[in-house]
């Protein structure tokens, strides 16, 4: 009965599943930051390969995530197109040379190797983080999320809010379905048969009752939590927390070394960009 539009935890036994959620979260965040800063194509290609290997190791099947991947591809493509449309000459500004493929730099729309190379770098940035995010989401037991967040320094109340949100997704989905059916019976068309605007309006009709129902739930659950002493102490322990093992420590070292390599390349390149055009 669970709907498949959300990606979720899948219980398998791999190296990545056994790692603590905190390690995976730290890895994901560290790689994302260094990857977002650097424009060194060699480094980006390196971590892309690395994350693809990890993805393979995690035994996540492509069919499980195909929907999400399609959406990401669509957005990335649109984004890259827009980057080009708004500033077709930006690559030449960055790299300081002009190797033309199509038309001259005087035209607004032109194409240079520099621009292509810049866009290729952006493409790498968008893609390398996707397998890592999927690995974190799909190999970490949701029950461990909150504990992982808390462990890397986020206050436990905030961390728990994440867990509660996960916990309530099925409820909200069920409420949405019930309310939507009732509204359809009254005559709101929100099926594909209806035209765009009536469909939007039909969906908006569901929102009001859905919000009220959800607010009621929040009140009840916050009382239930208080009655069981949530918020009393400065800290709390987590039943599902995974203790750090050898694998976690070695992984953290590997993560650190990779990030260090990324930083070292700033020095070698004299900045964030690796420039193959200048000789």
């Amino acid at each position: 009965m669970n709907s498949h539009f959300l990606i979720g935890y899948n219980d398998k036994d791999t190296f990545l599943h056994r790692l603590s959620g905190s390690t995976k979260l730290i890895g994901f965040i560290a790689f994302s930051i260094i990857g977002m800063i650097t424009y060194d194509t060699r480094f980006l290609l390196g971590i892309l390969t690395f994350s693809l290997i990890l993805f393979k190791l995690s035994k996540i099947s492509i069919t499980e995530v195909s929907f999400v991947i399609k959406i990401i591809i669509a957005f990335a493509a649109l984004n890259l197109l827009m980057v080009y449309v708004f500033a077709p000459g930006y690559g030449m500004t960055i790299y300081g040379t002009q190797h033309m493929l199509w038309r001259s730099p005087e035209n607004y729309f032109n194409l240079s190797w520099e621009e292509l190379f810049y866009i290729f770098n952006l493409f790498l940035k968008y893609t390398f983080a996707v397998p890592l995010a999927l690995i974190f989401l799909m190999t970490t037991n949701p029950s461990e999320f909150a504990a992982s967040l808390n462990k890397i320094g986020i206050p436990y109340k905030t961390s728990y809010a994440v867990e509660i949100a996960l916990r309530y997704i099925p409820n909200v989905q069920r409420d949405y379905r019930t309310i939507s059916l009732a509204q359809q019976a009254r005559g709101y068309e929100i099926s594909k048969k209806a035209k765009f605007w009536p469909r939007i309006i039909g969906n908006a009709q569901i929102l009001l009752p859905l919000i009220f129902t959800s607010l009621d739930r929040i009140e009840v659950v916050s009382q239930a939590m208080e009655l069981r002493r949530f918020g009393q102490g400065k800290r709390r322990t987590w039943y599902m927390e995974k203790q750090f093992g050898k694998a976690d420590y070695s992984s953290l070292i590997v993560i650190f070394l990779i990030v260090l390599a990324g930083v070292a390349l700033f020095n070698v390149n004299g900045g964030r960009f690796w420039n193959p055009f200048k000789h």
Partner: peptide, 17 residues
């Protein structure tokens, strides 16, 4: 509040650290 039965049972113990 818990995602699984066991976590829900343990909830107040977690708060007692």
């Amino acid at each position: 509040v818990g995602l699984t039965v066991i976590e829900d049972i343990a909830f107040s113990l977690e708060n007692d650290q």
